[in-house]
Structure formats: structure tokens, C-alpha cells
Amino acid sequence: MANVFVISDHHFGHKSIIDFESRPFGDAEEMTETMIDRWNAVVGSDDKVFHLGDFSFLNKEKTRGIVDRLHGYKTLIMGNHDRGRSRTWWLEAGFDEVSEHPIVYAGFFFLSHEPMYMNKHMPYVNIHGHIHGQKYEGSHYINVSVEHWDYTPVSFDEIRRLVVPNEEQ
């Protein structure tokens, strides 16, 4: 059975993000190669990955070169830095599916780029990116920005353990 992963905010080609977020890379090329290696170390060719936005600052050809190297069936939920390009642009850049809006996964998880409003009475969990190294308090939010996960996609099994720690998997 294929595994499902989530991750966000790679910012491929955005060298300033190294300083903005204190990323441990010497330059954008090292950042790119490390993040591709870490993705492919956990994601298999039959796995599915939801990328929750802000994927690449590069042109379509260079972006496609990265997408093509990444394992798995890749769905992009467009982030604020992705929305300047059309859904078609991202499909042509190699994503298998592209959504301009948040989606509900497994009837319980809201997958979005920016954190969504969630009050404590809502029985859902918002898996999001956008805020990089920051974190929202509470069990309703899980930030999957690369900075929190060692630049590696996180499996839904791990997310489930965070939400319901003692649940039998």
C-alpha cells in the first residue's frame, strides 16, 4: 500500500530564504540538492505527496527539472508565492494535481497553505505551512513547513500519532 506524505515551503531557488529562516545551507544549490535527497529518501515512486505550497521561485523549466526528480504522485495546494502562476503552469511544471484552494483529506484534515481559523470546538485538524519556523498552539494545527521536519516530507502515519498519540495504527 502506498504511503501518503505532506510537506510545504521548500522555496526552491529562493536563496534569501536561507537567511530569512536560518536554514543550514551554504547556498541555494546545496539547499535544493539536500531537499531533493531527503524527499527521495522517504518517498517511494508509488507514494502520494501533498505539497502545501510555496514550492519554487524558479522558471518553469528549472521547476520541472526538480519536480521530475522527486518520487511519488505529487499534488500541489497553491501557496501565496505559487498563486502568481496559473494552475496550468504548475501542471506543466510536472505536478500531477494542483488545487488553488484548501482540500479536505480523510474527512478530518484540512490541507491548506496558510493556517485556517479553527476554534477549539471543531473536530478537525489543519495541516498547513506558510509560517515556516513558527508554530500555532494547540492540537488543531500541524505546521509541515520544511523547517519543522528536517526538510523531509512527513508521513500521515506520523501526523496521526501526533493527533491521537495512543491510537492503534
Rank of each mutant, 00 (worst) to 15 (best):
K48R: 14
I159Q: 06
D157F: 07
G94S: 02
W90N: 09
H113V: 10
S56V: 04
G107M: 02
F5I: 04
N80K: 11
G107W: 02
N143E: 03
S155H: 01
E137M: 13
I131P: 02
G65E: 12
D82R: 04
D96H: 15
P102A: 10
S45I: 05
V43L: 05
H128T: 11
G79P: 00
R161M: 11
E33F: 03
V49I: 07
M31N: 06
R160Q: 12
H128G: 07
Y141R: 09
N119M: 00
F95L: 08
G53W: 01
D9K: 03
H113R: 11
L70W: 04
I36P: 01
V98Y: 09
A93C: 12
F57T: 06
M78Y: 10
T32G: 08
R38M: 07
P153K: 03
L70S: 04
P102D: 10
E114I: 13
H130I: 08
Y105D: 01
V4H: 11
S45A: 15
V125P: 09
Y136G: 02
F20D: 07
M78N: 05
W90L: 03
E158C: 04
A2E: 12
S56M: 03
Q134T: 08
P153I: 03
E33Q: 14
S155R: 01
N143W: 01
G84N: 12
E137I: 12
A2G: 02
N3A: 10
Y124T: 11
S45D: 15
R23M: 07
Y117W: 14
T34K: 09
D47C: 02
F12A: 00
H10N: 15
F109Q: 04
W89D: 09
G79R: 00
G65R: 08
D9A: 03
G133Y: 13
P115K: 06
H140Q: 14
G26S: 12
I127K: 05
I103S: 08
S155E: 00
V146H: 05
P115A: 12
A2H: 08
K135D: 13
V42M: 01
V4K: 08
V67L: 05
E21W: 03
V125R: 06
I18A: 05
G84M: 07
P115L: 05
I103N: 01
S155K: 06
H130M: 13
G107C: 10
I103E: 08
F20T: 04
D68N: 15
G94K: 08
W149G: 02
D27I: 00
K15T: 13
I131Q: 12
G129A: 10
H71L: 04
G26Q: 12
I127N: 02
I142P: 09
T34F: 06
Y136Q: 14
L70E: 04
D46I: 06
V98D: 10
S99M: 14
G65T: 06
P165R: 09
G107E: 14
G84T: 07
I66R: 05
F55W: 11
I17V: 14
V163C: 08
E137S: 15
P102K: 14
I103Y: 01
G94Y: 09
P102Q: 13
N40Q: 03
M1Y: 10
F55G: 04
N3V: 05
H81P: 01
L58R: 08
A93W: 04
K48H: 15
L52M: 09
W149E: 05
F20V: 09
I66G: 01
E21S: 15
